[in-house]
Simulated assay, not measured.
Amino acid sequence: MAEEINTILQNILVFDIETIPDISGGRRLHGIDLADDAGVAELLQHQRRIETQGASEFLRPYLHQVVAISALWWQGDQVKLSSFGAIEDPEATLVHAFFQMIQRHAPQLVSWNGAAFDLPVLHYRAFLHGIPATRYWEQGQNEPNYRWNNYTSRYHERHLDLMDVLSAYQARNVARLQDMALLLGLPGKLGMSGAEVLNHYQQGEKQAIRQYCEVDVLNTALLHLRFELTRGHLDKLAYETCQNQLRSYLQGRDEAHIREFLDLWPENLHVAS
């Protein structure tokens, strides 16, 4: 049992990011001469609505500024939930820390919609800040085993985008993290929604954003365990053992958002015999 779990969850980094509009970048890109940051954000979103004929105000990945990166790191019988950097750290520090984690430990990345959003945002932000990410971009030139399994290929598993895989790589089939978490009986998002991150950031509530991001990571991690169960990498007993391992770890944490998540996380999620 322990050997099975250690093999499957030997070096897994379940991650998520939170972003706001890139105000300074938007000023440069569109020649906006406006001192009010909130006003610039509104103009950028308005421009996007025009671009999409009213379908969306969600900005393109290169106009997102990263304000939080959180992750759950499985290392066999060890697990750790944290956010990269300190609350006051600038974006470049957070992005650099994320890619340094990959450089040093080469974990398998697990996300929900990471291929379409989180990673492209991180690509552009690393590019803009000049942050090296040698191992992340490796395609087999220096490490031959990366030729057939690398971080940037959609169909490889160094990055496993659960939403992409479960939708059979069809945009019409995608599901929101919140919907799948609630369908499974998980707590789902707590404290805010993605659309509210900018407002919380403007009010200086960076810690609340990091906590919200960590809750998204916890939901994603539990969806990942269910995926490993359904594809036969974990049997029912190993699946329950992994959940208990995570629950025990979280019970040792004293933060309010962790306690709330534990209170809403059912002891026994339904699994067919």
Rank of each mutant, 00 (worst) to 15 (best):
G185I: 10
L186P: 12
G191P: 14
G191H: 10
M192A: 15
M192E: 07
S193P: 03
G194K: 00
A195P: 10
E196G: 14
E196H: 15
V197S: 10
L198D: 06
L198P: 03
L198W: 13
H200G: 06
Q202R: 14
Q203G: 04
Q203F: 08
K206F: 11
K206I: 14
K206Y: 10
Q207N: 12
Q211D: 15
Q211E: 14
Y212H: 09
Y212V: 04
E214Y: 01
V215H: 01
V215A: 03
V217G: 03
N219E: 11
N219M: 07
L222G: 06
L223V: 03
H224C: 09
F227M: 06
L229W: 09
T230N: 13
T230D: 14
R231P: 09
H233V: 08
D235L: 02
K236Q: 15
L237P: 08
L237W: 07
Y239L: 09
T241V: 01
T241L: 02
T241W: 04
Q243D: 10
N244W: 05
Q251L: 12
Q251R: 00
Q251S: 04
Q251D: 13
I258T: 11
R259M: 10
E260Q: 12
E260G: 07
D263Q: 15
W265S: 03
P266F: 03
E267L: 07
N268I: 05
V271R: 08
